[in-house]
Structure formats: structure tokens, C-alpha cells
């Protein structure tokens, strides 16, 4: 059950999408999100869907994996759809007691659902094709200018990569604790939501204690390997922009600008 977590999941591969610099991919995702929020017509949504399909094609990520990524947000999508469908004023197409569906409501619901789905698949496409370590490297490098404002960019990136590194370790640990508690007769499956939540306490307490102990040991081990902050640090893998990165960025910018211009013309 715990193995289903898709957060930060990465599918190794060697497609152009995998080879892109992580900074390019982060920027492209930002461009995509901006464009997505500017889109409001059939034409512009069409462009957004087409862009995503092309990217999926290039990255060779399986459609099944993308849909699995949507699973945790199904509830939010349905909730948004229902709210928009029934509570948007406009010309009523259908009325039943206090419930009514308007033409504007249908349009809103469809566009909101599309927007959320595209947003999530677009972002997942980045995490699926970029290893977490490269992703944090990219973030660190992009946020570098903020160091002048005394934002601890290196420390934040370090925290992120350590957090990602420990996800499998902590999942394994949780499984172990759960088995140990089950062996002592703990029951995690039956009862209502409240009881189930309460049953989690004997898992969370040892998990937290061990996480703190791990953090302490890791800090000492890092110090023993001469860690002293980001100052004067070098890298095994230096990020480099290649031609394909510039091509991708130009395409991305063109699509974003195109969508914004189309919006200005009321499309």
C-alpha cells in the first residue's frame, strides 16, 4: 500500500526529454502552467493538450503511469466539476428542485477539470523524466540569485535531496513497525475513520523517534565527511545548457506567448 506513493517518482530512460537540463524542464513547466491559466477557448485548450501529447510522445512515458499520477486527485477533480456544474449562474439548461445546470456551468466544469488534469500530468512529466537529484540541482541553480537576498538556497536544496533520499528508508521502516505492531495484535483495517486514525499513533511515535535519531547520526556522518555548508563546494555533475535546451526553451516560450496573444484576441 505504501509503495503506491508517486511523489518524486522517476522512470529512468534515455529520451530527449530525459537528457534535457533540469533547469530547462523546470522553466518549461512554469511556462506551461502560465499558458494553462491564460487559456480559455477551445483553440487555446487544444494547443495545450496537443503540447502535452507531443511531450508525452517524446518522453516515452507510458500513459498508464500518467493516469496513475492522477489517482490521488480524482476526488478534487470530481469535487471541482460538481461545484462548477451546479453553482455557476447562466442560462439554465436543466433544473430539478434547487439544482440547476447552466451552459456556463458546463463550460466552467469542463475547463476546470481539463486545467487540473493538464497541470498535474504536465508536472508529473517533469518528475517522471528527471532524477530527484538533478531536479534539486536544477532548483538550486535557478534560485541561486536569491542567495544575494540571504535566502539559504543551498541548504534548502540539500534538505530536499536528503528528504527524497530518506523516503524509501522511512517507508521500509514504517512497514517494519506496522508488521511489529500487527504481530502484537494491533488492528489497522477495521473500524471507522476515527478509529483507523487512532490506530496510526503507535506507528507514528516510533517512526518519529527513529527519524530524529537518524537525522542526528546523519548530521555527524556528514560532518565527518567535511560538510561545512555550500561555501566552496564543487559538483560531480555540472549542469550545462546544450543546443536542445535552447530549442526547447524557444518552443516553450513561443507556445506561452502564442496562448497569451490569442487570449488578447478573445480566443
Amino acid at each position: 500500500m505504501l509503495k503506491d506513493i508517486t511523489l518524486g517518482q522517476y522512470f529512468p530512460g534515455d529520451t530527449p526529454a530525459h537528457r534535457l537540463d533540469p533547469r530547462t524542464k523546470i522553466l518549461l513547466v512554469i511556462f506551461y502552467i502560465v499558458a494553462l491559466f491564460c487559456a480559455k477557448s477551445v483553440v487555446t485548450y487544444g494547443i495545450m493538450i496537443l503540447t502535452l501529447l507531443v511531450c508525452v510522445q517524446i518522453s516515452k512515458v507510458k500513459a498508464g503511469a500518467l493516469f496513475r499520477g492522477l489517482k490521488p486527485v480524482v476526488f478534487i477533480i470530481i469535487f471541482t466539476a460538481v461545484l462548477n456544474l451546479f453553482f455557476t449562474p447562466g442560462n439554465y439548461l436543466f433544473q430539478w428542485g434547487p439544482l440547476h445546470i447552466s451552459d456556463a456551468g458546463v463550460r466552467m466544469a469542463v475547463s476546470m477539470v481539463l486545467r487540473i488534469m493538464l497541470l498535474i500530468t504536465g508536472t508529473f512529466l517533469m518528475t517522471y523524466t528527471t532524477s530527484p537529484i538533478r531536479l534539486t540541482d536544477g532548483l538550486e541553480s535557478l534560485l541561486n540569485p536569491l542567495k544575494r537576498l540571504h535566502v539559504p538556497v543551498h541548504e534548502l536544496a540539500m534538505m530536499m535531496s536528503i528528504a527524497l533520499r530518506f523516503i524509501p528508508t522511512l517507508i521500509e521502516e514504517t512497514d517494519k513497525i506496522m508488521s511489529a505492531q500487527k504481530a502484537r495484535g494491533a488492528d489497522f483495517e477495521s473500524g471507522n475513520l476515527f478509529r483507523k486514525a487512532k490506530a496510526l499513533i503507535p506507528i507514528l511515535v516510533p517512526l518519529f523517534i527513529s527519524a530524529f535519531r537518524r537525522a542526528d547520526e546523519l548530521a555527524v556522518a556528514m560532518e565527518c565527511r567535511c560538510y561545512h555548508g555550500g561555501e566552496g563546494r564543487t559538483k560531480l555533475h555540472v549542469l550545462k545548457f546544450a543546443t536542445r535546451d535552447w530549442v526547447a526553451l524557444v518552443c516553450g516560450t513561443a507556445i506561452m506567448v502564442g496562448v497569451i496573444v490569442l487570449r488578447q484576441f478573445g480566443m
Binding site: 537529484i133 533520499r165 565527511r225 567535511c226 560538510y227 560531480l236
Partner: peptide, 16 residues
């Protein structure tokens, strides 16, 4: 072990 790829972890000390 600090990193989630073996080579990155071994590189940690020389990077520092």
C-alpha cells in the same frame, strides 16, 4: 548515506 545514487554519495566528501 547522503545521496540516492551511489556515485553521488561517494562524491559527497570531495564535493565538500
Amino acid at each position: 548515506i547522503v545521496a540516492n545514487v551511489v556515485e553521488e554519495d561517494v562524491a559527497f566528501a570531495p564535493e565538500n
